[in-house]
Design a protein around this nucleic acid. Structure first.
Lengths: 233, 233
DNA sequence: CGTGCTTTTGAATAGTATCAAGGCCGGTGG
DNA sequence: CCACCGGCCTTGATACTATTCAAAAGCACG
């Protein structure tokens, strides 16, 4: 845990850096910084200056916006292999904050190193571009969801998203991440009270099972049926 | 109007293709397709297969999602030099539809041509990546706006967005695009009735002036003050 | 100068946030 | 080991905001 994992030894094949040539990967590996973040820790904060780009080696993270009223809104969930703080390629301050949802190992690469690698590796920059275009499409759908869904639909959609990113235990169907009601509310775009009520309803419909912060997703098809009108045919 | 403008003669310096070398630009130019779209015309439709990428030479466009209930939601506005249909680099179907808000000239480049150029031009693919990362950040903010703003704030924000993308006449301060109440409602994320009421209120506060579909933005600072809590310090 | 679409307005309704209070649980200290 | 404290969760009642519905007025187009 103390010693930094060299990129060539890294087991995470989803990392974008693996697209680089071995020499470039070696260069990145020597200059990178690796850190464990405990559940609840900030990786970076909205408004802070951007010095580089983060790669999630393993773990889970929420990207949130903060408001004066204190209410947060999740705009993205990210797991192993995903990129964080990637808005730092053209602008100078973070638009969002990033918080670990479980203990998470993250590699940090400085702006100038990353930029140099990108400009010399079309394969990397092209694939990064494709990644962004997909994230952009997904975020565009979130705009629609927030604008048009009612609470029931928003909460169902939130759990579909949790499921897609973090998955469930294959035996118990328990979500592979422990979330507070606050976390769920921020993702769904509502209040903790509404989350309580909606989870109670979902439980009575046998869609889920609650045990404290452990949630079993008994019937994912059922959740998807709730939001079917918002999905692309 | 009939004859296609060659990329080397194109006056739009904001087009990403201008980042290419002259030879590559020539290649693109010979294989591209150029088309005028009338106000209200679809450029592409949600669910349709993706054959390439669109560059706006001049004009204005809205990118919208469609729902079963018929209600649309604007997820992006785009003007001269912007890219459309860029989700087509990794996936096979459009997530969104695209509609001209005024008469618009658009260049179309086929997938394989664009891909080849990108993979041989790091400058282009790197800059495209930066463009996407900025769009992603902006769209993330839209998620927050839709989740947390009330109608008054949403409508103010919609007009700030229209202003940023299309601008106003320097003398009359009239918005450089004519929008139906429906267009405004789709952008703000509400109904046409609410738009009517809110515009009436804004007019009585001397923030705007209405004349049919022509809107004068008398006091943009005033609109920005309404949404100040949602902006990054 | 109709005819149909868009906009406006008011009233009723539904949905959601807010407020307040009580319960549950985990941690801490006596 | 037990009692207390504080944070998180749950629940119900209430207030408010926004949507929906209905109808009339305005405007554009043939």
């Amino acid at each position: 845990m103390k010693h930094t994992i060299h990129c060539n030894d890294c087991k995470n094949d989803k990392c974008f850096m693996k697209l680089c040539s071995p020499e470039r990967l070696d260069l990145v590996s020597k200059s990178k910084n690796q850190n464990w973040y405990k559940k609840g820790d900030y990786i970076f904060k909205e408004g802070a200056p951007i010095f580089g780009i983060y790669f999630i080696q393993q773990g889970g993270v929420k990207v949130v916006t903060e408001s004066i009223n204190g209410r947060q809104q999740v705009v993205r969930l990210a797991n192993d292999g995903k990129i964080l703080g990637h808005r730092g390629l053209g602008i100078e301050k973070y638009y969002f904050s990033s918080v670990a949802l479980k203990d998470t190992l993250i590699c940090f690469v400085q702006n100038d190193v990353f930029r140099t690698i990108c400009l010399n590796d079309t394969n990397l920059s092209y694939n990064m571009m494709v990644f962004y275009s997909l994230e952009l499409a997904r975020t565009g759908l979130l705009v629609k969801y927030q604008a048009q869904m009612n609470i029931r639909e928003k909460v169902a959609q939130a759990f579909i998203y949790f499921y897609e990113v973090f998955g469930v235990d294959s035996n118990t169907k328990t979500l592979n991440v422990e979330l507070s009601r606050q976390d769920i509310a921020e993702t769904a775009g509502t209040t903790t009270e509404q989350i309580t009520r909606q989870l109670r309803d979902f439980e009575s419909e046998k869609l889920i099972l609650r045990d404290k912060r452990q949630i079993q997703l008994l019937n994912i098809q059922g959740l998807e049926y709730i939001v079917r009108d918002y999905k692309i045919g």
